[in-house]
Write a protein that binds this DNA or RNA. Sequence first.
DNA 1: GTGAAAGCGCTAACAG
DNA 2: CTGTTAGCGCTTTCAC
Lengths: 324, 324
Amino acid sequence: MASIRDVAKLAQVAPSTVSLVLNNKGYVSEVSRKKVLDAIEKLNYVPNELARNLYRNSTNIIGIIVPDVAHPFFGAFIGALEIALYKYNYKIMVCSTIERENAEHEIVDMLRRQMIDGIIMGCHSLEVDLYDNVNKPIVAFDRIINNKIPIIRSDHEKGGRLAAQAMLKAGCKYPLQITGIKNSSMSAYLHHSAFKDELSRNGIEVINYEMEWNKFDMNYFKRVAVDVFEKYPHIDGVYGADMVVCACLGEARKRKLDIPKDIKFIAYDGTFITESSFYNITAIVQPINILAQKTAQMIVSLIKNENIEKEVIVPISIRYGDTC
Amino acid sequence: MASIRDVAKLAQVAPSTVSLVLNNKGYVSEVSRKKVLDAIEKLNYVPNELARNLYRNSTNIIGIIVPDVAHPFFGAFIGALEIALYKYNYKIMVCSTIERENAEHEIVDMLRRQMIDGIIMGCHSLEVDLYDNVNKPIVAFDRIINNKIPIIRSDHEKGGRLAAQAMLKAGCKYPLQITGIKNSSMSAYLHHSAFKDELSRNGIEVINYEMEWNKFDMNYFKRVAVDVFEKYPHIDGVYGADMVVCACLGEARKRKLDIPKDIKFIAYDGTFITESSFYNITAIVQPINILAQKTAQMIVSLIKNENIEKEVIVPISIRYGDTC
DNA sequence: GTGAAAGCGCTAACAG
DNA sequence: CTGTTAGCGCTTTCAC
């Protein structure tokens, strides 16, 4: 591995001159510049980023924690974040907490150890106090951690209301919603309670079906779907996150229900799977790209020590499909 | 930021002693150890990983390139890789090439600059010569780069054959396969040609429908589905990757075809979306966890300079659903 | 314009 | 068992 000193030696200049050329800083005579560039070429020299990182005390890497990369919502979010952060010259390092409980500790630790410049926290931590003494850039995505850490999320209250209104308009009388909520600090709580309230205000009571929390595999959702229809065969509307609604649609088919006549479905999130199913599923669509852009912007501002808003709420909308 | 020197000063020992304590190396008297630990506690000291990285000339980060993190296959692969690599104490850094053409250059560059210790290359590069002079750990996932870089993939030939046999058994006479292949170095080529050959051997000709390459969005697949049925309304079997098969199923529904009586479907990959659709889609299932484990194992061996196999081929199987 | 020198924070020889 | 010292490879003052 050629170092900057080797280049300097070959070019017959000082290491600092090489550095200036590399970083396009200060003034370097054309003669020296040429000699340096030639030497770099000849030695096939590549600067060592680790030394730079040490000097600058930063890596231009942002850590991202999500429950599960393979989940369509988080997958899309991460993809969008990668692109958004790239514009600010940051790379991403992804950690999933599902199946790896201590991922959260680890990434906070990496922040402390200077391995990453900031964290985008998109999972539902149970150990909020983990973040108490970390006075470094952290942005919370769709989750309240503490009152110091800024948060970005969709307008879930409106999302829940939109869904409720669509159910009402479609003439739904016995709606059921499937929740997977640990506690009210999770913002999913917001749309589910808005959904319930809005319907209730119109004289319709929503059945709450509670799932296990932080479960994302299709087989589990299928079991939930079976259970939902066994316990509540009379329902004529289902509201829940994309994947579980997909599973319920499949179950409705097995039960030979006519969709949307017999039963209506609205999915929350509106990831590609609501469009890839047999039916186009009516969905409340979270604007993933905008969320990612805002999140990227915020973590970068935080790193630069700029002023930021404590809360960014992004508008949400409904996309009508065949199921409601 | 407290440094190792501050700790040493407070503990009244030398920095090297602190280092020994931190790394649990060599012998340190209980008295010194205690003093050091106290000082660390008091100063809230956290070692700076960047300095370590510089010294060791490694970061324990593996770069992963895929076309699209949000794609269900790659999402699952990345999730599995994260877990597999975690066991070897590596973190991952993800890059998608879709929408970011130069991601590939960048990540190779990071390898050169010592920012990452190795690369798992899971996208279909068009610039194979990019890798010619990189004499560092690279593993190719499902893709031939050059004869120096080891490859891991499923047994696609068998996958194609299994699909063909299932189609035959189901009595399919006019199968169509949807490909998205750039050139024969892509291993998708293998299963598609095996599929065609196997059916041909049984007197059945497969129609080839060629999609654009490296396109992964659902809307595109839906357009493809419409086009497929418009051009070839008489087909009674569709074979292709998960997402496009999902789209075709949706189109078949619109055309009121009876599934699987009128038309059969087999999806290649078998990601969760084949199980989340209205139907359980019959699929050739790539063993993502095993692929990820083998890939992780291989890149780690490569980093450690151990001997490795040049090619690892993992068995594949068919999962019967409702569509064939 | 350019070079010498200090230092980012840590590790590992090597004396003692 | 512990301290001194010399780097890892780069950047940046600060003289010249």
